[in-house]
Design a protein around this nucleic acid. Structure first.
Length: 298
DNA sequence: GTTGAGCGTT
């Protein structure tokens, strides 16, 4: 396919800029954001209805309406539109989503037979409702099942129903519960940085940036090397970061868990970045101080 | 090549 560009502008009557599409006809949100920093999506005026329409966005990829971008000018969406007026609405929306709307979360499935596969789980749980993902936890070396797994449903009602009863799976009774990892939803800490747990090795900084852009402007993505199965993502707006904490999100088909960065004790190296003798001696001192004091003082 | 309460390679 020849190289294709779509026309994008900040406002309807402004001069558009040409943004390149991918080989499959989609446009990466990151391509848009490269020219319009902070962009989180596109919209356009539907010639038939004269209404604004949103462009489908899936994991950082923008899809052409009816498989053809046509000759329209697309308008950039930003997480928060005009200055402070919208900022307040945005905050209210964030709170509403966090409180009212009942999001589903991963459920742990305990007591699975050793032989049960992910396909078995999918088949079984699909009888309750649409399944987003299933996992069977296995020993990395042997590949043997550890006898438990995870399942995630689309609908909260399905989740409620599944938790409420026992499950006969491949000849054993199994229980589905909310996992402990989300027992204590993170509290205050107005951090703009989130901790992204359970990352897989094929997730690049670009992948994460593209994915998280849909929630707000991303200012930094950090993936430790060598691979440690987690990452940090920093947003421009702390409300965006806070709203995501406690969520399970699916990136590249994998369920990652979002929590506050630095949840336990604050990072001493960040508190005292220029400590004389370097951070190693500071860490040693910190450890000793914890050792000497009774726990009630720490 | 085993097992049967738990908690996902922070």
């Amino acid at each position: 396919m020849s190289e294709l560009y779509i026309r994008v502008a900040e406002e309807e009557n402004e001069e558009p800029m040409e943004i390149p599409s991918e080989d499959d006809g989609t446009v990466l949100l990151s391509s848009v954001a490269a020219q319009f920093p902070g962009a989180c999506g596109l919209r356009y005026r539907n010639p038939e209805t004269q209404c604004m329409r949103g462009v489908r966005l899936v994991e950082g990829v923008l899809h052409p309406p009816e498989n053809d971008w046509g000759n329209l000018v697309y308008i950039v969406n930003y997480p928060k539109d005009n200055k402070r007026k919208m900022e307040e609405i945005d905050a209210a929306t964030v709170v509403k989503i966090k409180r009212g709307f009942q999001k589903t979360s991963d459920l742990i499935v305990l007591g699975l037979p050793w032989k049960t596969t992910e396909q078995d789980l999918k088949d079984y749980f699909s009888t309750f409702g649409e399944v987003i993902m299933v996992q069977v936890k296995r020993d990395a070396k042997t590949g043997n099942s550890k006898g438990f797994g995870f399942v995630r449903f689309t609908d909260y009602e399905t989740q409620t129903k599944v938790i409420a009863q026992r499950h006969m799976i491949d000849g054993r009774w199994c229980d589905c519960k909310l996992p402990n990892s989300k027992a204590c939803p993170d509290e205050p800490m107005r951090s703009r940085k989130i901790f992204v747990g359970r990352c897989t090795e094929d997730m690049t900084t670009d992948d994460l940036r593209q994915y998280f852009m849909q929630y707000g402007e991303v200012t930094d993505v950090f993936i430790p090397k060598p691979f440690r199965a987690f990452a940090f993502v920093t947003f421009a707006d702390d409300q965006v970061a806070q709203a995501l904490c406690g969520e399970d999100l699916i990136i590249k088909g994998v369920s990652v868990h979002i929590s506050n960065a630095e949840p336990k004790h604050n990072n001493i190296h960040q508190l005292f970045p220029n400590f004389p003798g370097g951070s190693a001696s500071l860490a040693a001192m910190f450890d000793r101080s914890q050792y000497h004091f009774p726990s009630s003082h720490v």
